[in-house]
């Protein structure tokens, strides 16, 4: 039963989503089934969030309890989870769900700081703590790209040399200083790179990978719907 029921559910849900693509949602219920299933998925996802919070708290709380290495940072992680979540979930006005009870206990002056609106506590944490940290992590890519390119970009054989040459041309073309350099050879060179490298070779390769991946995805979906592929269920 632990295998049969999930296979039936997967088959019905998958088939319904495929079939609904071919029907008008305005005129027949089956055409609208896709929307309904997607909404169910969002609801299930919301409940699953609890699992995530439990996991993150359990893993980190255990480390804090044992005072293992770096326990302070783990404590900060747990505090951060609740510091972002709790004020954002609190009622923003007296009319919000649970607002009348909440503001009979706490002062009205808290209203502006709760929820996710402008000037709220969440907004402040996002703009001045979370966003700069995210930007910093993303900016680190510049350093990592440089070191990866230095280490991996070697003209080992004819194909790698061709790749190296093309990548250098594109890197030059994508920045004003490089483009000015390319124009020293020919005014048309940047245009040629755009037309032939980006619009030609690049598009051919991208389409090849996209079509292949799409077929792979479709084939995998079919195997799942028909119950042939069951590894994702732990079987």
């Amino acid at each position: 039963m632990r295998t049969t029921i999930p296979i039936i559910v997967a088959f019905l849900a998958g088939t319904l989503l495929i079939v609904s693509f071919f029907f008008h949602p305005e005129t027949i219920w089956i055409g609208d089934a896709k929307e309904v299933i997607l909404q169910w998925m969002t609801i299930v996802g919301g409940f699953a969030l609890v699992l995530g919070v439990v996991s993150i708290v359990r893993v980190n709380a255990r480390a804090v309890q044992r005072k293992s290495e770096g326990w302070f940072y783990k404590l900060m992680t747990v505090i951060s989870v609740f510091a972002m979540a709790i004020p954002a979930m609190m009622p923003v006005t007296k009319e919000s769900v649970g607002g009348s009870i909440f503001y009979s206990i706490f002062p009205d002056s808290w209203m502006g700081y709760l929820g996710t609106g402008s000037n709220s506590f969440y907004d402040w944490l996002f703009n001045y703590v979370d966003a700069p940290m995210m930007e910093t992590m993303f900016a680190m890519l510049a350093f990592y790209i440089a070191s990866a390119a230095y280490r991996a970009f070697r003209a080992r054989n004819a194909e790698a040399t061709l790749l190296l040459f093309t990548a250098t041309l594109v890197m030059l073309w994508r920045v004003p200083m490089g483009e000015a350099f390319l124009r020293l050879f020919s005014d048309n060179l940047p245009g040629y790179i755009n037309t032939y490298v980006m619009g030609g070779f690049n598009v051919a390769v991208q389409r090849g990978i996209i079509i292949g991946a799409a077929l792979g995805a479709a084939s995998m979906s079919l195997r799942i719907i028909l119950g042939i592929e069951r590894t994702y269920m732990g079987k």
């Binding site: 919070v53 590894t231 732990g234």
Partner: peptide, 16 residues
């Protein structure tokens, strides 16, 4: 990164 992936992966690893 996602709770749903957590649930599915736990199931798979435990099963394995």
């Amino acid at each position: 990164r996602y709770p749903m992936v957590l649930a599915a992966s736990q199931e798979v690893v435990e099963g394995a």
